[in-house]
Design a protein around this nucleic acid. Structure first.
Lengths: 151, 151
DNA sequence: AAAAAACAGTTGCATTTTGCAAATAATTTG
DNA sequence: CAAATTATTTGCAAAATGCAACTGTTTTTT
Protein backbone atom coordinates (compact mmCIF):
# COMPACT_ATOMS: atom_id res chain seq x y z
CA UNK A 1 0.00 0.00 0.00
CA UNK A 2 1.11 3.48 -0.83
CA UNK A 3 2.18 6.31 1.41
CA UNK A 4 -0.74 6.83 3.72
CA UNK A 5 0.04 10.32 4.80
CA UNK A 6 0.31 11.34 1.17
CA UNK A 7 -3.23 10.18 0.53
CA UNK A 8 -4.53 12.25 3.39
CA UNK A 9 -2.45 15.23 2.52
CA UNK A 10 -3.72 15.29 -1.03
CA UNK A 11 -7.30 14.82 -0.01
CA UNK A 12 -7.38 17.45 2.68
CA UNK A 13 -5.44 19.86 0.52
CA UNK A 14 -8.03 19.54 -2.22
CA UNK A 15 -10.98 19.79 0.08
CA UNK A 16 -9.41 22.77 1.79
CA UNK A 17 -9.02 24.43 -1.55
CA UNK A 18 -12.61 23.77 -2.35
CA UNK A 19 -13.58 25.33 0.94
CA UNK A 20 -11.56 28.39 0.17
CA UNK A 21 -13.10 28.81 -3.25
CA UNK A 22 -16.56 28.63 -1.78
CA UNK A 23 -16.07 31.48 0.63
CA UNK A 24 -17.17 34.52 -1.25
CA UNK A 25 -20.93 34.36 -1.48
CA UNK A 26 -23.38 37.00 -2.56
CA UNK A 27 -21.06 39.95 -2.50
CA UNK A 28 -19.96 39.14 1.00
CA UNK A 29 -16.35 38.20 1.54
CA UNK A 30 -16.02 35.42 4.05
CA UNK A 31 -12.62 34.16 5.04
CA UNK A 32 -11.94 30.47 5.39
CA UNK A 33 -11.89 30.61 9.18
CA UNK A 34 -15.07 32.59 9.24
CA UNK A 35 -16.71 30.00 7.04
CA UNK A 36 -15.68 27.33 9.50
CA UNK A 37 -16.99 29.37 12.39
CA UNK A 38 -20.37 29.78 10.74
CA UNK A 39 -20.49 26.10 9.98
CA UNK A 40 -19.67 25.12 13.52
CA UNK A 41 -22.09 27.53 15.15
CA UNK A 42 -24.78 26.07 12.97
CA UNK A 43 -23.74 22.54 13.85
CA UNK A 44 -23.46 23.05 17.58
CA UNK A 45 -26.64 25.07 17.99
CA UNK A 46 -26.25 27.80 20.58
CA UNK A 47 -22.68 27.19 21.68
CA UNK A 48 -20.83 29.51 24.01
CA UNK A 49 -17.68 31.18 22.78
CA UNK A 50 -15.59 28.75 24.76
CA UNK A 51 -17.40 25.70 23.45
CA UNK A 52 -16.93 26.96 19.95
CA UNK A 53 -13.24 27.54 20.53
CA UNK A 54 -12.89 23.98 21.74
CA UNK A 55 -14.78 22.59 18.81
CA UNK A 56 -12.65 24.50 16.37
CA UNK A 57 -9.47 23.88 18.33
CA UNK A 58 -8.88 27.57 18.04
CA UNK A 59 -7.34 30.09 20.37
CA UNK A 60 -10.21 31.77 22.17
CA UNK A 61 -8.83 35.27 21.80
CA UNK A 62 -8.57 34.92 18.07
CA UNK A 63 -12.04 33.46 17.98
CA UNK A 64 -13.40 36.25 20.13
CA UNK A 65 -12.19 38.78 17.63
CA UNK A 66 -13.43 36.88 14.61
CA UNK A 67 -16.83 36.68 16.21
CA UNK A 68 -16.83 40.41 16.75
CA UNK A 69 -16.37 40.79 13.03
CA UNK A 70 -19.10 38.34 12.19
CA UNK A 71 -21.41 40.19 14.53
CA UNK A 72 -20.55 43.44 12.78
CA UNK A 73 -21.26 41.79 9.45
CA UNK A 74 -24.63 40.83 10.85
CA UNK A 75 -24.09 37.11 10.50
CA UNK A 76 -23.80 36.07 14.12
CA UNK A 77 -25.70 37.03 17.22
CA UNK A 78 -24.33 37.06 20.73
CA UNK A 79 -26.89 36.54 23.44
CA UNK A 80 -26.08 36.86 27.14
CA UNK A 81 -26.83 33.67 28.99
CA UNK A 82 -28.97 34.38 32.06
CA UNK A 83 -27.97 31.34 34.12
CA UNK A 84 -24.31 32.31 33.94
CA UNK A 85 -23.63 35.88 33.12
CA UNK A 86 -20.06 35.28 32.05
CA UNK A 87 -21.27 33.36 29.06
CA UNK A 88 -22.47 34.43 25.66
CA UNK A 89 -24.55 32.16 23.51
CA UNK A 90 -23.81 32.29 19.82
CA UNK A 91 -26.26 31.81 17.01
CA UNK A 92 -26.59 32.64 13.36
CA UNK A 93 -28.75 35.53 12.30
CA UNK A 94 -31.18 35.06 9.44
CA UNK A 95 -28.56 36.38 7.09
CA UNK A 96 -25.89 34.22 8.70
CA UNK A 97 -28.05 31.17 8.23
CA UNK A 98 -28.57 32.14 4.64
CA UNK A 99 -24.87 32.58 3.97
CA UNK A 100 -24.00 29.34 5.74
CA UNK A 101 -26.59 27.49 3.71
CA UNK A 102 -25.28 29.06 0.54
CA UNK A 103 -21.74 27.95 1.26
CA UNK A 104 -23.00 24.53 2.21
CA UNK A 105 -24.94 24.20 -1.01
CA UNK A 106 -21.99 25.26 -3.09
CA UNK A 107 -19.63 22.81 -1.47
CA UNK A 108 -22.15 20.01 -1.72
CA UNK A 109 -22.61 20.82 -5.37
CA UNK A 110 -18.89 20.51 -5.92
CA UNK A 111 -18.84 17.25 -4.01
CA UNK A 112 -21.71 15.93 -6.06
CA UNK A 113 -19.74 16.72 -9.16
CA UNK A 114 -16.76 14.87 -7.75
CA UNK A 115 -18.88 11.87 -6.89
CA UNK A 116 -20.39 11.84 -10.33
CA UNK A 117 -17.10 10.35 -11.47
CA UNK A 118 -17.82 7.15 -9.56
CA UNK A 119 -20.52 4.54 -9.41
CA UNK A 120 -23.28 4.65 -6.83
CA UNK A 121 -21.68 1.73 -5.07
CA UNK A 122 -18.30 3.39 -4.95
CA UNK A 123 -19.86 6.54 -3.63
CA UNK A 124 -21.57 4.65 -0.84
CA UNK A 125 -18.33 2.91 0.00
CA UNK A 126 -16.37 6.13 0.09
CA UNK A 127 -18.89 7.86 2.30
CA UNK A 128 -19.06 4.94 4.67
CA UNK A 129 -15.29 4.89 4.75
CA UNK A 130 -15.09 8.51 5.75
CA UNK A 131 -17.71 7.93 8.37
CA UNK A 132 -15.72 5.06 9.77
CA UNK A 133 -12.56 7.08 9.67
CA UNK A 134 -14.17 9.88 11.61
CA UNK A 135 -15.40 7.47 14.21
CA UNK A 136 -11.96 5.98 14.63
CA UNK A 137 -10.31 9.37 14.83
CA UNK A 138 -12.77 10.28 17.54
CA UNK A 139 -11.88 7.10 19.39
CA UNK A 140 -8.18 7.63 19.04
CA UNK A 141 -6.56 8.74 22.23
CA UNK A 142 -3.50 10.15 20.61
CA UNK A 143 -4.84 12.27 17.81
CA UNK A 144 -7.19 15.16 17.76
CA UNK A 145 -7.29 15.41 21.51
CA UNK A 146 -8.86 18.82 21.74
CA UNK A 147 -11.46 17.94 19.16
CA UNK A 148 -15.14 17.68 19.67
CA UNK A 149 -15.86 14.27 21.00
CA UNK A 150 -19.02 12.85 19.53
CA UNK A 151 -19.29 12.58 15.82
CA UNK B 1 -27.29 9.31 3.69
CA UNK B 2 -26.03 11.91 6.04
CA UNK B 3 -24.75 15.37 5.35
CA UNK B 4 -21.82 14.85 3.03
CA UNK B 5 -20.08 18.12 3.63
CA UNK B 6 -20.21 17.47 7.35
CA UNK B 7 -18.32 14.23 6.91
CA UNK B 8 -15.59 15.98 4.99
CA UNK B 9 -15.46 18.90 7.33
CA UNK B 10 -15.00 16.68 10.34
CA UNK B 11 -12.39 14.58 8.67
CA UNK B 12 -10.28 17.39 7.31
CA UNK B 13 -10.59 19.30 10.55
CA UNK B 14 -9.20 16.36 12.47
CA UNK B 15 -6.44 15.63 10.05
CA UNK B 16 -5.54 19.31 9.97
CA UNK B 17 -5.31 19.29 13.71
CA UNK B 18 -3.08 16.29 13.63
CA UNK B 19 -0.86 18.08 11.15
CA UNK B 20 -0.64 21.07 13.42
CA UNK B 21 0.30 18.99 16.42
CA UNK B 22 3.07 17.33 14.50
CA UNK B 23 4.84 20.53 13.57
CA UNK B 24 7.31 21.07 16.34
CA UNK B 25 10.04 18.53 15.92
CA UNK B 26 13.37 18.27 17.61
CA UNK B 27 13.47 21.71 19.16
CA UNK B 28 12.70 23.31 15.82
CA UNK B 29 9.43 25.19 15.51
CA UNK B 30 7.83 24.57 12.16
CA UNK B 31 4.59 26.29 11.27
CA UNK B 32 1.83 24.40 9.55
CA UNK B 33 2.46 26.09 6.21
CA UNK B 34 6.14 25.42 6.49
CA UNK B 35 5.42 21.78 7.14
CA UNK B 36 3.33 21.66 3.99
CA UNK B 37 6.07 23.37 2.03
CA UNK B 38 8.64 20.84 3.17
CA UNK B 39 6.30 18.02 2.31
CA UNK B 40 5.61 19.34 -1.13
CA UNK B 41 9.23 20.06 -1.99
CA UNK B 42 10.02 16.51 -1.03
CA UNK B 43 7.15 15.20 -3.11
CA UNK B 44 7.81 17.24 -6.20
CA UNK B 45 11.59 16.72 -6.25
CA UNK B 46 13.41 19.82 -7.38
CA UNK B 47 10.49 22.12 -8.09
CA UNK B 48 10.90 25.77 -8.97
CA UNK B 49 9.36 28.36 -6.68
CA UNK B 50 6.55 28.88 -9.16
CA UNK B 51 5.80 25.19 -9.47
CA UNK B 52 5.69 24.90 -5.74
CA UNK B 53 3.34 27.85 -5.46
CA UNK B 54 1.01 26.22 -7.98
CA UNK B 55 1.12 22.91 -6.17
CA UNK B 56 0.31 24.53 -2.87
CA UNK B 57 -2.19 26.93 -4.40
CA UNK B 58 -0.34 29.64 -2.56
CA UNK B 59 0.47 33.21 -3.42
CA UNK B 60 3.99 33.25 -4.78
CA UNK B 61 5.07 36.29 -2.78
CA UNK B 62 4.05 34.69 0.47
CA UNK B 63 5.76 31.50 -0.56
CA UNK B 64 8.90 33.35 -1.56
CA UNK B 65 9.18 34.77 1.92
CA UNK B 66 8.43 31.49 3.63
CA UNK B 67 11.17 29.88 1.60
CA UNK B 68 13.59 32.55 2.67
CA UNK B 69 12.89 31.57 6.23
CA UNK B 70 13.28 27.90 5.56
CA UNK B 71 16.59 28.62 3.85
CA UNK B 72 17.71 30.59 6.89
CA UNK B 73 16.68 27.72 9.09
CA UNK B 74 18.86 25.52 6.95
CA UNK B 75 16.05 23.25 5.82
CA UNK B 76 15.74 24.22 2.17
CA UNK B 77 18.29 24.91 -0.52
CA UNK B 78 17.81 27.23 -3.48
CA UNK B 79 19.86 26.38 -6.51
CA UNK B 80 20.03 28.60 -9.61
CA UNK B 81 18.90 26.75 -12.68
CA UNK B 82 21.43 27.13 -15.48
CA UNK B 83 19.08 26.58 -18.43
CA UNK B 84 16.86 29.45 -17.29
CA UNK B 85 18.46 31.91 -15.02
CA UNK B 86 15.19 33.31 -13.77
CA UNK B 87 14.45 30.06 -12.02
CA UNK B 88 15.54 28.65 -8.71
CA UNK B 89 15.33 24.96 -8.00
CA UNK B 90 14.27 24.02 -4.52
CA UNK B 91 15.38 21.02 -2.55
CA UNK B 92 15.60 19.88 1.03
CA UNK B 93 18.90 20.00 2.84
CA UNK B 94 20.00 17.01 4.84
CA UNK B 95 18.47 18.56 7.90
CA UNK B 96 15.33 19.47 5.98
CA UNK B 97 14.99 15.91 4.83
CA UNK B 98 15.44 14.76 8.38
CA UNK B 99 12.78 17.10 9.71
CA UNK B 100 10.36 16.23 6.95
CA UNK B 101 10.86 12.53 7.61
CA UNK B 102 10.36 13.11 11.30
CA UNK B 103 7.05 14.87 10.73
CA UNK B 104 6.04 12.21 8.28
CA UNK B 105 6.81 9.46 10.74
CA UNK B 106 4.89 11.14 13.49
CA UNK B 107 1.81 11.64 11.38
CA UNK B 108 1.97 8.12 10.07
CA UNK B 109 2.26 6.87 13.59
CA UNK B 110 -0.88 8.74 14.54
CA UNK B 111 -2.65 7.39 11.49
CA UNK B 112 -1.58 3.88 12.34
CA UNK B 113 -3.08 4.35 15.76
CA UNK B 114 -6.30 5.52 14.19
CA UNK B 115 -6.39 2.57 11.84
CA UNK B 116 -5.78 0.19 14.69
CA UNK B 117 -9.40 0.76 15.60
CA UNK B 118 -10.55 -1.03 12.46
CA UNK B 119 -10.07 -4.38 10.83
CA UNK B 120 -7.48 -4.95 8.14
CA UNK B 121 -10.24 -5.17 5.59
CA UNK B 122 -11.81 -1.94 6.69
CA UNK B 123 -8.46 -0.25 6.58
CA UNK B 124 -7.88 -1.40 3.03
CA UNK B 125 -11.31 -0.21 2.05
CA UNK B 126 -10.83 3.18 3.61
CA UNK B 127 -7.46 3.70 1.95
CA UNK B 128 -8.77 2.62 -1.42
CA UNK B 129 -11.69 4.96 -0.93
CA UNK B 130 -9.45 7.91 -0.30
CA UNK B 131 -7.37 6.97 -3.27
CA UNK B 132 -10.48 6.86 -5.42
CA UNK B 133 -11.68 10.15 -4.01
CA UNK B 134 -8.40 11.81 -4.86
CA UNK B 135 -8.55 10.51 -8.38
CA UNK B 136 -12.06 11.82 -8.84
CA UNK B 137 -11.19 15.19 -7.37
CA UNK B 138 -8.31 15.39 -9.80
CA UNK B 139 -10.69 14.58 -12.64
CA UNK B 140 -13.26 17.10 -11.53
CA UNK B 141 -13.31 20.17 -13.68
CA UNK B 142 -15.01 22.34 -11.15
CA UNK B 143 -13.09 21.76 -7.97
CA UNK B 144 -9.48 22.15 -7.11
CA UNK B 145 -8.65 23.79 -10.39
CA UNK B 146 -5.27 25.17 -9.45
CA UNK B 147 -4.24 21.91 -7.86
CA UNK B 148 -1.47 19.68 -8.95
CA UNK B 149 -2.81 17.50 -11.69
CA UNK B 150 -1.56 13.95 -11.43
CA UNK B 151 -1.97 12.17 -8.18
C1' DA C 1 17.86 41.95 -34.13
C1' DA C 2 15.52 45.64 -31.44
C1' DA C 3 11.26 46.44 -29.12
C1' DA C 4 7.51 44.51 -26.79
C1' DA C 5 5.47 41.12 -24.12
C1' DA C 6 5.75 37.47 -20.87
C1' DC C 7 7.73 35.16 -17.03
C1' DA C 8 10.28 34.03 -12.42
C1' DG C 9 11.23 35.73 -8.42
C1' DT C 10 11.85 39.42 -4.91
C1' DT C 11 10.65 43.55 -2.25
C1' DG C 12 7.55 47.59 -0.40
C1' DC C 13 3.82 48.44 1.86
C1' DA C 14 -0.48 48.18 4.33
C1' DT C 15 -3.80 45.01 6.14
C1' DT C 16 -5.13 41.07 8.57
C1' DT C 17 -4.36 37.29 11.59
C1' DT C 18 -2.47 35.29 15.43
C1' DG C 19 -1.56 34.23 20.35
C1' DC C 20 0.42 35.23 24.79
C1' DA C 21 -0.14 38.01 28.87
C1' DA C 22 -3.01 40.71 31.41
C1' DA C 23 -7.52 42.74 32.61
C1' DT C 24 -12.44 42.31 33.80
C1' DA C 25 -16.38 40.27 35.36
C1' DA C 26 -18.97 36.39 37.22
C1' DT C 27 -19.11 31.96 39.58
C1' DT C 28 -17.57 28.31 42.43
C1' DT C 29 -14.88 26.41 46.20
C1' DG C 30 -12.95 25.82 50.65
C1' DC D 1 -16.24 35.55 52.56
C1' DA D 2 -11.60 35.13 50.55
C1' DA D 3 -9.35 32.53 47.10
C1' DA D 4 -9.38 30.05 43.12
C1' DT D 5 -11.58 29.16 38.69
C1' DT D 6 -13.92 30.18 34.55
C1' DA D 7 -15.64 33.02 30.41
C1' DT D 8 -14.63 36.57 27.68
C1' DT D 9 -12.32 40.65 26.12
C1' DT D 10 -8.32 43.81 25.19
C1' DG D 11 -3.08 45.26 24.68
C1' DC D 12 0.51 44.42 22.08
C1' DA D 13 3.93 42.73 19.32
C1' DA D 14 5.05 39.27 16.02
C1' DA D 15 3.86 36.72 11.95
C1' DA D 16 1.38 35.98 7.68
C1' DT D 17 -0.87 37.67 3.66
C1' DG D 18 -1.43 39.68 -0.98
C1' DC D 19 -1.44 43.40 -4.26
C1' DA D 20 1.45 46.46 -6.84
C1' DA D 21 5.71 47.55 -8.38
C1' DC D 22 10.47 46.25 -9.45
C1' DT D 23 14.60 43.54 -11.37
C1' DG D 24 16.44 40.46 -14.31
C1' DT D 25 15.75 36.93 -17.94
C1' DT D 26 13.60 34.66 -21.73
C1' DT D 27 10.36 34.60 -25.54
C1' DT D 28 7.63 36.74 -29.08
C1' DT D 29 6.67 39.88 -32.45
C1' DT D 30 7.55 42.18 -36.24
Amino acid sequence: MENIRGLFQTMTKRFGLLNKNCCSVGGMEISLVQSHILYEIDRLKQPSVQQLADALAMDITTLSRQIQKLVQMGLVKKTPYPEDRRIFILSLTTEGTYIAAKIDAEINEYLTEVFSHMSEFEKETVLRSIQLLNDCMAKSSVCCKPMYGGK
